[in-house]
């Protein structure tokens, strides 16, 4: 579904990702791990179209999307849950979902709104509440729900667990795993919480200083967590 072939990404003059090879298939959850500054967020933002790719090609469902704008990629079936959630704080929960479904017809958006709030019943209770006043966990649920409004086939999720209570993280991952298994959603997830992501992901790619340093299945990663921790700079001592 998603293929990155020798992709390099730049922020200004600086190349932050080099020669990245990555694939994500339908129904699969792939984790992108790495220490701070490894190029994980830049990769996600390049796939979503917010950061330019300077070399290589990104293909989605067999088609090159390098020249497409972010809304064109959204229309094609890419959803983004960005780092820091970036919900619209002055809009209500419902209005955030309206913006998420802006590319849909009014009727379709209303139907979809009911479907995504069924995934996160807490949002239904907070429907008319200003999003900026929600708790961090509720904001993350809203960010995921907003991205799901357009029925994406690939969801890009950046730092889902950051600053959230474990119970909320579990709930969010539970929803994503269910969507992957039951509806064939593909997920590319950037995550710092290694322990959690290795229990839900299918495959893992580890980046360091913009280069791929390890790729394998989550099972292989779980079998040698110390190796992954070393690559992430998390080893004790």
């Amino acid at each position: 579904m998603l293929e990155l072939a020798r992709v390099s990404v730049a922020r200004g003059e600086l190349r932050v990702v080099r020669d990245l090879e990555l694939t994500v298939s339908a129904g699969e959850m792939v984790a992108l791990l790495g220490p701070n500054g490894a190029g994980k967020t830049s990769t996600i933002m390049a796939i979503a179209g917010h950061v330019p790719v300077v070399e290589g090609t990104i293909r989605f469902e067999g088609r090159s999307i390098d020249t497409l704008s972010p809304p064109e990629r959204t229309r094609l079936g890419l959803g983004l849950v960005p780092e820091g959630r970036r919900i619209f704080p002055d809009l209500t929960v419902r209005e955030n979902l309206v913006v998420g479904g802006y590319l849909l017809s009014r009727g379709e958006a209303q139907k979809r709104e009911r479907e995504v709030t069924a995934l996160f019943p807490r949002l239904e209770e907070r429907r008319q509440q200003r999003a900026g006043t929600l708790s961090g966990g509720e904001q993350q649920m809203l960010s995921i729900a907003r991205a799901l409004m357009v029925r994406p086939r690939l969801l890009l999720v950046d730092e889902l667990s950051l600053g959230l209570m474990p119970a909320v993280v579990d709930l969010c991952f539970e929803v994503l795993v269910r969507l992957c298994r039951e509806q064939g959603l593909a997920c590319l997830v950037v995550e710092q919480n290694t322990q959690k992501i290795l229990t839900v992901a299918d495959r893992v790619t580890v980046l360091s200083a913009g280069r791929t340093v390890w790729q394998g299945t989550a099972e292989e990663a779980r079998a040698d967590e110390a190796l992954i921790d070393r690559m992430l700079g998390l080893e004790a001592g």
Binding site: G49, P70, P71, L91, G100, L103
Partner: peptide, 25 residues
């Protein structure tokens, strides 16, 4: 501003133009 999709999109643009644009606004 509160009763139309265009108005909501306007307010979203005030909050975060880059994110609003990524949703097609």
């Amino acid at each position: 501003a509160v009763g139309s999709r265009a108005g909501v999109a306007w307010r979203a643009t005030v909050d975060d133009p880059e994110m609003a644009m990524s949703f097609g606004v």
